[in-house]
Design a protein around this nucleic acid. Structure first.
Length: 556
RNA sequence: UGGGGUGUAGCCAAGUGGUAAGGCACGGGACUUUGACUCCCGCAUCCGUUGGUUCGAGUCCAACCAUCCCAGCCA
């Protein structure tokens, strides 16, 4: 994997690694700490790249840690999916796979330590009262329990743990600064009561540490040197450091924040993605239109393309929204190098070569990838009856159209040059068959007299081709910023984001296609089998991305 | 109008006082048995604004403007 390019985080780490710096002589150690309450998406891919990539750049380590401090939304199915997605991306946490819940006992001990130092107290304000007593810009927060004696807080905290009190009855709060301009410091709750089954610790606990308290401890316990997270935690950093510095945990991690990824024509929040799934706007978390890693994978995205995308968008602190087209560019760039070229007709119309004998056929060898001769050739069958793309014929050609129209010559890729002589229509006036004559002296597509043929189109042989279902995708939303401001993103859903084409005609070689194998359907885009719906004798392809097209207006 | 951030091209993004990298997009051209790919060329006299310091400012200072995040017993 190519080394990550320099960014502001690395500048900072360089300083800390220098003689006299906080991390002089130490090994860089980062972590990726998802909460197992949903599926990973392309935004996480950036974070994963930053966390693992930074460690790798410095010859350090990166842990995978499930930040499971709130059992209400968490589930094991997510922890498995998360691991699968990270592995798919190509990153390796080796044997360093941890759970925040494994540190509950240790964290509890540090909480008693804080109480003992007079730095935490049990507060019995109800959630509503706490909210009402939070104060405002000019008015400090309040809690009548703030000066509760240490012994009393300790006793109450132990009884909280023992399960003597119902949810919400009391909390443990850090005793910091009720008047701070940073509301995170106004005696934040660090433990709450929640009588809930935890996916890992079961019913052992009924009190759970809050993120702001737990995270710095998790990092310190794992000896993390750099805790990289997104910008919204920037004003939590003073609290992160307060916890780290007021408890006897050994580690000394430092939090650094960077901008999270936003993209056009999609949404990135777990809540919204969940809504798309639950309301049935998509077929599931792995719907090929979803920005989830499982969705992208099913769509045909390669790990390399996603990693390369993450590398090229950079890491900075300015809020940014990357164009979705850039992700697509990264996919094309990768697939162009590796995907085998094949011919497939999405919207078939018959092409009859009227001067080619009936019953005769011949085979041609066609290169699999013109950019890579070493990929070899394959056989395609040619005969009198073929299928071509309906859009490759126009009875009355548009301006600059150089495909099939009466009187015009076109090359059938790898076979012969043919000249259009007309077409057959049904009663409604639809073209149902295109007629042409071939030039016998153009075998392989090279006219004997050397005349130039401007257009080359793809085709398949009627009697040997296979039928397939092709699924074409477009942006999930018609609005580049579907959830900006107070917009309801559901209103911006693209009704045409999925087009299912049946009865498509694909060349015979595609019968050997394997799950995970990418193809370029010449002139039509990159496709791969749908891993869920394709099966023996059932060809179902997803279009991963279109080809760039300087002629057509639409990328259908 | 509290606290914390951020403003360099349509979108990302380098730049760390010495005269605006790179990528995507876009436009033009060459090549082409994919209107793809590839290859050339073009694309910020200017860095949110206004002042100031300096021989010299995107880089330093000041003020202002814009914009994002924060008042969960979520993460």
């Amino acid at each position: 994997m190519a080394e990550m390019s320099q960014n502001f985080i690395h500048d900072f780490i360089d300083e800390e690694l220098a003689p006299g710096g906080r991390c002089a002589g130490m090994r860089v150690h980062t972590r990726f700490p998802p909460e197992p309450n949903g599926y990973l998406h392309i935004g996480h891919a950036k974070a994963i790249y930053v966390d693992f990539g930074t460690a790798e750049k410095y010859g350090g380590l990166c842990n995978l840690r499930m930040d499971d401090t709130n059992p209400t939304k968490e589930d094991v199915t997510y922890v498995e999916a998360i691991q699968e997605d990270i592995k798919w991306l190509g990153f390796d946490w080796e044997d360093r796979f941890y759970f925040a819940s494994d540190y509950f006992e240790e964290m509890y001990g540090y909480a008693e330590e804080l109480i003992g130092k007079g730095l935490a107290y049990v507060c019995q304000l109800t959630p509503e009262e706490m909210k009402a007593n939070r104060g405002d810009v000019g008015k400090p927060a309040q809690s009548p329990y703030r000066d509760r004696p240490i012994e009393e807080s300790l006793d109450l905290f132990r009884r909280m743990r023992a399960g003597e009190f119902p949810d919400g009855a009391m909390t443990l709060r850090g005793k910091i600064d009720l008047a701070s301009g940073n509301f995170n410091m106004r005696d934040p709750v660090i433990y709450r009561i929640s009588h809930m089954h935890h996916h890992r610790s079961g019913d052992k606990w009924c009190i759970y540490p809050m993120y702001d308290y737990a995270h710095p401890l998790e990092d310190a316990i794992e000896n993390i040197t750099h805790s990289l997270c997104s910008l919204e935690f920037e004003d939590h950093r003073p609290l992160y450091e307060w916890v780290r510095d007021n408890v006897s945990v050994k580690g000394n991690p430092r939090q650094i924040e960077f901008a999270r990824l936003n993209m056009t024509y999609t949404v990135m929040s777990k809540r919204k993605l969940r809504q798309l799934v639950e309301e049935g706007h998509v077929s599931g978390w792995d719907d090929p239109r979803m920005p989830t890693l499982c969705g992208l994978r099913r769509r045909g995205y390669t790990p390399a393309s996603v990693r390369n995308f993450a590398e090229r968008i950079g890491v900075a602190k300015a809020a940014s929204t990357v164009e979705y087209g850039f992700l697509e560019h990264c996919l094309r760039e990768d697939l162009n190098l590796s995907a085998a070229r094949v011919m497939a007709v999405l919207r078939p119309v018959k092409l009859t070569i009227t001067n080619y004998p009936e019953g005769r056929s011949e085979t041609f060898m066609v290169e699999n990838n013109p950019n890579r001769p070493e990929d070899g050739e394959r056989e395609v069958t040619f005969s009198r009856n073929l299928y071509i793309e309906a859009e490759d014929f126009m009875e009355e050609p548009a301006k600059k159209y150089f495909r099939l129209f009466p009187g015009n010559e076109v090359r059938l890729k790898g076979a012969y040059v043919v000249k259009c002589t007309g077409c057959v229509k049904d009663e409604a006036g639809n073209v149902i068959e295109v007629l042409a004559e071939y030039d016998p002296d153009s075998r392989g597509g090279n006219p004997a007299d050397g005349r130039k043929i401007k257009g080359t189109i793809h085709w398949v042989d009627e009697s040997t081709c296979l039928e397939a279902e092709l699924r074409l995708y477009d942006n999930l939303f018609t609005d580049p910023a579907p959830d900006a401001g107070d917009k309801n993103f559901i209103d911006a859903l693209n009704p045409d984001s999925l087009k299912v084409l049946t009865g498509c005609k694909v060349e015979k070689s595609l019968g050997e296609a394997k799950i995970g194998e990418a193809f370029q359907f010449m002139r039509m885009g990159y496709f791969s089998l749908d891993p869920k719906d394709a099966g023996p004798g059932k060809l179902v392809f997803n279009r991963s991305v279109t080809l760039k097209d300087s002629f057509k207006k639409e990328g259908d």
